[in-house]
Design a protein around this nucleic acid. Sequence first.
DNA 1: AATGAATGAGGTTTCATTCAT
DNA 2: TATGAATGAAACCTCATTCAT
Lengths: 209, 209, 209, 209
Amino acid sequence: MQKKLTEEQQQTIMDVATKEFGEKGLNGANINYIAKCSNVSVGVIYKYYSNKEELFSACLSRSLSHLNKTLQEAVKDVGDIETTMSYLISAAITFSKKHKNEIRMYHWITTISGEKAKEYAREIETVSSKLYKELISKAKSEGLVHGDMDPGVFAFFFDNLLMMLHFSYGCDYYNERFRIYMGEDVEDKDEYVKEQLVLFLKRGLKMKM
Amino acid sequence: MQKKLTEEQQQTIMDVATKEFGEKGLNGANINYIAKCSNVSVGVIYKYYSNKEELFSACLSRSLSHLNKTLQEAVKDVGDIETTMSYLISAAITFSKKHKNEIRMYHWITTISGEKAKEYAREIETVSSKLYKELISKAKSEGLVHGDMDPGVFAFFFDNLLMMLHFSYGCDYYNERFRIYMGEDVEDKDEYVKEQLVLFLKRGLKMKM
Amino acid sequence: MQKKLTEEQQQTIMDVATKEFGEKGLNGANINYIAKCSNVSVGVIYKYYSNKEELFSACLSRSLSHLNKTLQEAVKDVGDIETTMSYLISAAITFSKKHKNEIRMYHWITTISGEKAKEYAREIETVSSKLYKELISKAKSEGLVHGDMDPGVFAFFFDNLLMMLHFSYGCDYYNERFRIYMGEDVEDKDEYVKEQLVLFLKRGLKMKM
Amino acid sequence: MQKKLTEEQQQTIMDVATKEFGEKGLNGANINYIAKCSNVSVGVIYKYYSNKEELFSACLSRSLSHLNKTLQEAVKDVGDIETTMSYLISAAITFSKKHKNEIRMYHWITTISGEKAKEYAREIETVSSKLYKELISKAKSEGLVHGDMDPGVFAFFFDNLLMMLHFSYGCDYYNERFRIYMGEDVEDKDEYVKEQLVLFLKRGLKMKM
DNA sequence: AATGAATGAGGTTTCATTCAT
DNA sequence: TATGAATGAAACCTCATTCAT
């Protein structure tokens, strides 16, 4: 019997597909092209995934699990909120520089309309929103964060800034926008960006400095 | 000879197209459908715009001019930075609730890759980035903003938050995410959101309170 | 504006499609090939018919209306049952020799399974079954047909023989079978076939001879 | 080494394939599906049959041999023509109720066009046509059948009626047509149908009654 | 000899764009 | 100048067949 696609081949398909989906989105992506670039036949892709959307979902899930793993890593030996946020920011920068395609693919999700959009949002955002809220609530109860700050709201602001950081490193449009705001030499400024963001967040939360 | 398209008809095309582009993006939009909904022929659309992307650009430009008008409105009788930011936030909320389609269309831009993405970014982001930077520089020179805050960086953070607010009101995915962070009754919380954001920004900038 | 497909072109499409469907059936038929043979684009076929099945249905309807017109023609100045049957047989032979493709297409219908088959059967068979039953009932009441003959049953036998005649002229398999039973010179035997069938039917019905 | 397919497995393949071919025809049938349902690999089917058509042919041959066995059974202790016909009719009804799939598969043959159709027709129809012709010739020479009846022609009519009976029990379209002519309670009328058909044939042949 | 995973040609359908009127 | 019908390239997906094990 012909050998099954090796694990490596399967990963290649995913990688290629993630790239293609990242560049063109679900509808724009071309399965035949993905097959060609992955050096497999179209047919075999349809053996593994029953249609294009399913391949997309699979790629997305893989990406999200990467993303979540990074997230968990960043918060695992959680100390004070400042350190944690600092870790999260570093992780975001590192991840999005290294996994542009995954960030891009995730970004495509945000263009979906209707019920599907809600489903995806719930699937993707629930974990981190909970994490951030708890982080802030805890800091608040410890008096490290100003009392009139709503944890949910601040978690939202925080994730907004983090998300935009992801996109700024991963997506072409956002990246150019990043340069417009930050200057052409933005690539060399990761540390600076991080510091400024931490500073801004600390003050915004009125954390003890 | 057939009469030229009236101004009204031209606006209708734009309105319909903006809706279609907002829902489906550049590639997903259907020109024939836009023509039908606008009660004009496809042919005439191609007389006014040489291809789909040009129609998209035209719609986008119109939307951006709306957006900029709102922006200018918000900063025209500029007082202190806090008031201005507060105005800008209010304007963002109002605008995105009222012009979902325009926000959505703008959001589609962010999915573009390559050189085109850069062009669009420059066209769109330059004005507001300059505005925000100046705003902050001025406040800084007046001692209203902490000295170690980089105006460009902060302008970036500020626009990120504003942009996410736009999307949170306009796009389905972001809207659901908004609810996840803020609670189901998010619709009734506009004032609250604004207040919290102002508070956060003020502190973040270490403005005199 | 580009001219609409002329009536002639539309008929060509139908003719070509009827031929293709007659040869290959609904699933086997190739729309691109139909378009090419009709000297029109695929697109325009999909403007007129929303999918392949609809084109098939349209062709079938046209064929059935031809068939029914012939049927009505044959029974319009209805005299005695013998003459009418004789006419019907002649009509069947003439029609199926002239409109092979329509007969073949109709034949494909008989391969359908499930609910769809029932729908088609009701649409197609109801008229003629009623006609034949009435014809026989009338003859029976006039004493021209033996009293123990059930009109419905005989109508069934009659239509069976007529249908097989249609197929024997129109469909390749049935045509060859026809030759096996009737001899290679079957083409020259139309009159003879008809006479024998009339004779057989008359006796079968025990009509006055 | 893997064991050869058991006789039972081979029969299962045939059974499953006959069902699939009966439902979908040669082109519509799915070999992979047949393999799965038969609990064998596709590969082994291609070891036994070099392509789909050959499997079809094999199934058909098997079905025809069943059909012919039934036919031979019906005519073996041949008495007078009436009894024989009566037997044949009964056999047709019984067989087609019991072996729908085989009847259906046979029916698909009748859709074939071109040279292939002729081949199949010769393979399938020669035996029975000869049998029927002889049957009638013999009866004619014994004075049991009217002198002006052509045995070949009558054999044709007879087989037509028999064939339609087969299809009426086996195929969905023909079955519904059957009901339209005979009433909804057609299932309970087998005996009646047979009697009427015998009656009709006897008279049609002007047999001594 | 059997397995069953992989192959890839082929067909339906969509829709941006053209162009005759 | 507007019309809108026609065009035809392009892409998803299926499934008969192959072939490495």
